[in-house]
């Protein structure tokens, strides 16, 4: 019986060939499957809700035009991480009233405003506001810089519309993960937030909708900060399409009970 079999089959070498063929077939299937991105929506319905294809000329068009001048300033900043300019801004104190005035005119502090002539304080106000904004940008640039460094490790799909977007969720996941690492803070044991994130075709976060909060304001805010930070440097979704996915944010290594 055994002998008969071995005679008919071409031995271990033959078996290897058979195996190799099967592998080849498998590879072809995987490749095919990757090529036909249309199949995916059925398989991951929650992640891919609303795959509306919007006509977008180029995937890079997401970069907003008005910010062009700042683009010149910002890149060099990350090079010098801790910021000397903001330090200077603190001794110059009277600028404080500027903030209330700018943000909520109604709540302006009359007592403070009286002290300086209007014109002078206005000028000052603007300068201060600028300085503050610079400081804020620096903080964000700092974090983004770190995120970028990490981002390259995990990698992300190209933004070429022709390619199938099977990995965009993975890409987004890794960007969010890195961002959450930067701002993670919580006061409860196993908080989690479920949120729907919509990335517009130009690579900006068009909508952040919390489906289920954690009940821990610290963690809720941390997630929002993470999304905001991650949203600053996203590659647009492939195919000039909008991307919408549901994400669950939680601390690492913590089981979900509730």
């Amino acid at each position: 019986m055994k002998r008969g079999l071995t005679a008919r089959y071409p031995g271990p070498g033959g078996m290897f060939i058979v195996s190799f063929l099967c592998h080849a077939v498998a590879l072809a299937i995987v490749a095919n499957w990757n090529l036909f991105g249309e199949l995916k929506p059925d398989e991951t319905p929650v992640t891919y809700v609303d795959m509306v294809t919007l006509p977008v000329a180029s995937p890079q068009s997401g970069t907003p035009a008005p910010a062009a001048e700042k683009a010149v300033e910002a890149p060099p900043q990350p090079a010098a991480p801790p910021a000397p300019p903001p330090v200077m801004s603190h001794p110059v104190q009277p600028a404080k009233p500027a903030k209330p005035a700018a943000k909520a005119p109604a709540a302006a502090t009359p007592g403070n405003a009286k002290e300086t002539p209007a014109a002078e304080s206005n000028d000052f106000t603007q300068r201060m506001a600028k300085l503050e904004q610079l400081a804020q940008e620096r903080r964000q640039a700092e974090v983004l810089e770190r995120l970028k460094k990490k981002g390259t490790r995990t990698g992300m799909p190209g933004a070429k519309g022709a390619e199938a977007g099977s990995d965009y969720p993975t890409y987004l996941q890794s960007r969010l993960k890195d961002a959450l690492k930067e701002v993670m803070v919580s006061q409860t044991k196993s908080p989690y937030v479920i949120a729907t994130i919509t990335v517009s075709p130009d690579g900006r976060i068009a909508q952040y909708h919390v489906e289920k909060g954690s009940g821990d304001p610290l963690f809720d805010d941390a997630v929002q900060r993470a999304v905001t930070l991650a949203g600053k440097s996203l590659v647009p979704p492939p195919g000039g399409a909008k991307f919408k996915g549901m994400f669950r944010f939680r601390p690492e290594g913590v089981g979900i009970n509730k």
């Binding site: 929650v46 992640t47 969720p169 987004l172 996941q173 969010l176 993960k177 959450l180 690492k181 993670m184 803070v185 919580s186 479920i194 993470a226 996915g245 549901m246 994400f247 669950r248 944010f249 939680r250 601390p251 690492e252 290594g253």
Partner: peptide, 9 residues
């Protein structure tokens, strides 16, 4: 969902 986790606070 797509899980997004980060290490300790």
């Amino acid at each position: 969902y797509i899980d997004v986790t980060a290490p300790a606070s």
